[in-house]
């Protein structure tokens, strides 16, 4: 098995870098690249205490699979890829996304990691609501999936 994708209900389970490292580990790897996205404590001058991630579960998993398969076809068919994203209430410091790639060479490992991150942001139906220290909260703007010919 060379591909693992999942949405993690963050109140019940943590996203684990150890699990990711174990999954991509192989004697064939000359390079292992790991990207960890985390909830940070500030955005546009506002003090953030947590983020709630909402997701269309089935469509997210479908998009994750498609993005990772495209990445393998584009950069390295033998790459091992681990991709998990948080769903639910994630306090500051929590891992929101983890992408781990094992590949023969560093260039492919880096490129696959970056490609997956950017494609997830533009294809996967996931939404972020920030919770602020003053008690307010806000859904963040994003990328429209409406067919371009209609906009």
């Amino acid at each position: 098995m060379s591909l693992h994708t999942a949405l993690i209900k963050i109140e019940e389970e943590k996203i684990s870098s150890e699990k990711a490292k174990k999954f991509i580990s192989s004697e064939k790897n000359g390079a292992e690249s790991i990207f960890i996205g985390k909830v940070r404590n500030e955005n546009s001058g506002k003090k953030v205490i947590a983020v709630t991630y909402d997701a269309h579960d089935q469509a997210v998993i479908k998009s994750f699979q498609s993005i990772c398969k495209n990445a393998k076809n584009k950069f390295d068919k033998n790459a091992k890829i681990f991709l998990e994203h948080a769903k639910g209430y994630a306090p500051v410091g929590e891992i929101s996304i983890l992408i781990a790639v094992g590949s023969g060479h560093r260039d492919e490992a880096f490129k696959i990691c970056r490609y997956i991150l950017e494609e997830v942001k533009h294809q996967s139906p996931i939404w972020k609501k920030e919770h602020y220290a003053d008690g307010k909260e806000e859904w963040l703007p994003g990328h429209s999936l409406r067919p371009k010919k209609e906009i």
Binding site: G37, Y53, A55, H56, V60, H85, S96, I97, L117, V120, K121, H122, Q123, S124, P125, I126, W127, K128, W139, L140, P141, G142, H143, S144, L145
Partner: peptide, 9 residues
């Protein structure tokens, strides 16, 4: 399903 502009990661 209504799909507002997305922004995960």
């Amino acid at each position: 399903s209504i799909i507002p502009p997305i922004g995960g990661g």
